[in-house]
Nucleic acid binder design. Structure first.
Lengths: 234, 234, 234, 234
DNA sequence: AATGAATGAGGATTCATTCAT
DNA sequence: TATGAATGAATCCTCATTCAT
């Protein structure tokens, strides 16, 4: 019988006293959930597994989160905030007007990676919306709206050919694109074996590449459309 | 104990005898699963529920499908085939350089609807790939590849600015887009109530509209790109 | 809807905390399984029934045992260990050489009882060997081998006419005999009623009596055989 | 996809008219069950499997047997009758005081084989006694009693040292022995792998050999006992 | 007599959540 | 605060038996 390094790890047993330590423990749990998402699909992640990963007792999780879904909603909240911070910073670095390719590159980096982050976003809508309190759901959507609106405006500043509201539209569209590509990536045993079959290359898509080119084309298309019917409000 | 109207309904007791009637019953089951998809999210659909919806006994389902997953794989297969038929027919109706708007409209109709059909496609990759036999998975992907390739070529004929392989790429991209938008549509109680909150209009997206405009812009972008670097093979 | 006395009983709600109490609870479960074996045949014992008998929730059983089979494997392990302890002690009490009748009596008490213990042994081989991990199966057989070998040697010391290895052979043979007799004992309603029919006395065997006489005759036979061809190694 | 020879076989579709043909079909079913017993353990044999093996519809089985258990009870009845016929014939061939070794050999051949026949006998008592009508159970036990009594007397004639009733006792004991040894033979995957582990040779018993020697020793023991306290009734 | 589609009770097992310690 | 034992509803699936054809 082998002993994995997990068994060697000391339990987190210290009590979290004070706001600061409790915040740290909360983040510790989120980090554990995040790491699991790397290796496991959402439906296969049990609270037991999260607890084990976090080296905490199952019950402890429920001291920090009301339900399993709220764990992942909180995780999504954090990730999205960070992501927007990153994108906003990079957009602010750009001149106005900016090169369309540069903006496309920045946006693509947002959801263009086939990683756990995108995996989480992919399941957010739909899966997360159950067993989540109205307040938690509302708070999340509010955050999302605020950030989307702000970044959308930033976008419209850097790409003047965008009409009012098209900044947000671009963001939503690229988000949808990222989520959609994620779903198409094989995760299962059978799926992988099928993709290894000759002729199936068509499905061995690189989400990054396709996202990148699609984002660029989309922006170019909007630019071309704008050239034909310019925004009257500007 | 309350008695729902379900308990009042007479069971389907007629026996499916002969290939034809068995085919019909099989379709009846698929239809039930399809209808449930309208009101329920995939993970929440139990075989029990499908049976109830179909007014059949649980065991009967297993006479027609080996596992729960194969039910939905079969459903997806049917829907996809029909969808491609529809699109192919409409594309064939188009002249050989066709109007970009017309093509965009046709393609949008494919995955642009926020209905159960798209919902199913959205979960196909990932969820369906487990508990499905290798053969069933392979057969499904083969069908998909065949249809994608063919329709992709059709597309390249109608839109000559598309380079080799870009037809399929467009289809995959729009599929991803449709799937992504679907995920963003609220399904749950909480989700709906949140969206009814003031200020949340931003999320009350109409997938159809957004898909339509995104598809058009995407194609226009590709056209513009092609104008700059024409396909050498043509 | 009727309410059985079961529903009246208070659930076991106390928590088993600490190694000692958990060991106790584990034994409590085994005891419940053991008791059920008295009234029910193995295949008819569901985990549900074990849980009810133990006044525990179904899920609790799975905290202590991975599968249904491991419950009964554990039970068998315990019983066999105890049984061998008892026999070994009594054999050690005997002089060497011992009276053949005394040894037969000791051995008969091992598997000669038509009780649940023997019933369990009767199903061990075959039924238990599925859904049991390789390690668990191996561990069990190792235990059995160790005890058999030791007790076999003890036997050869007490009965010097036994040749090398015949001690174990005697044990295996008597085990088989006990198991076989168990099978012949009626358990069911119909079986019992049939045996109550006139003329069926022949089948109203007393396993204890038959085992006792068979064991004695077997040993006597071996003694007689040894008298003809003595063990060269001694 | 490969096609096994089974698929090639023509279905048995002819209607069985008349007593004779119905008897033949009944035997056909029993034969199928018997063959399955060779490859599968009793609990894993479904009526579906029997029907498939017999190339009949499931429902047809129920025209000939009321329950699954009655199928195997009937099978046991046939096999036991044949077995007794064989033994009786061989015993009648023996001179009136016969050699003890010869008789032991004859009896051992009865249940000493690790084949499906013994496998069936091993499960008879206990498994078969449920879901069997009182009449069927009674009929079976009557048959058994009649044959046992007769063969027991035959035995007492050939081995004059046997006291009244000991013939039947010997038969029952050897039956128990055979059944018990059968149980000890590994059937499962895990069981087989465990037995292939070093040191487990002890369990790799050959039922035939052990039965043979045990039967002989038993009879010798009875002879020795008889020499000490002769049967007063003879 | 034969068929095989339909039934539905019943099985083992999982897991989010609760709560006594 | 933290723990993890206990819960029990829910899941997918099997299979002996029935019965319309």
């Amino acid at each position: 019988m082998t002993v994995s390094w997990h068994d060697m790890e000391p339990r987190v047993r210290k009590r979290a006293v004070g706001v600061e330590q409790k915040e740290a423990r909360r983040n510790h749990i989120l980090r554990a959930a995040f790491d699991l998402l790397d290796r496991t699909r959402y439906e296969d992640i049990s609270m037991n597994a999260v607890a084990r990963e976090a080296r905490l007792a199952k019950g402890t999780l429920y001291l920090y989160f009301k339900t399993k879904e709220e764990v992942f909603l909180a995780l999504a909240t954090e990730l999205i905030a960070k992501e927007f911070n990153r994108i906003d910073a990079r957009l602010l670095d750009q001149p106005a007007p900016a090169e369309i390719e540069d903006v496309a590159g920045i946006l693509t980096s947002m959801v263009g990676r086939a990683d756990r982050k995108t995996r989480l976003l992919a399941i957010l809508h739909g899966v997360l919306e159950r067993n989540v309190s109205f307040d938690a759901g509302l708070a999340f959507k509010h955050l999302l709206r605020r950030r989307l609106t702000y970044t959308g405006l930033l976008l419209e500043e850097r790409l003047p050919f965008l009409k009012d509201g098209e900044g947000v539209e671009v963001l939503l569209t690229l988000h949808a694109l990222g989520v959609g590509f994620m779903q198409m990536v094989a995760n299962s045993d059978v799926g992988t074996r099928v993709l290894d079959t000759p002729g199936m290359d068509i499905f061995r898509i690189s989400p990054e590449t396709m996202m990148g080119s699609a984002a660029l084309r989309l922006l170019e298309g909007m630019q071309a459309a704008a050239a034909r019917t310019p925004n009257r409000h500007r």
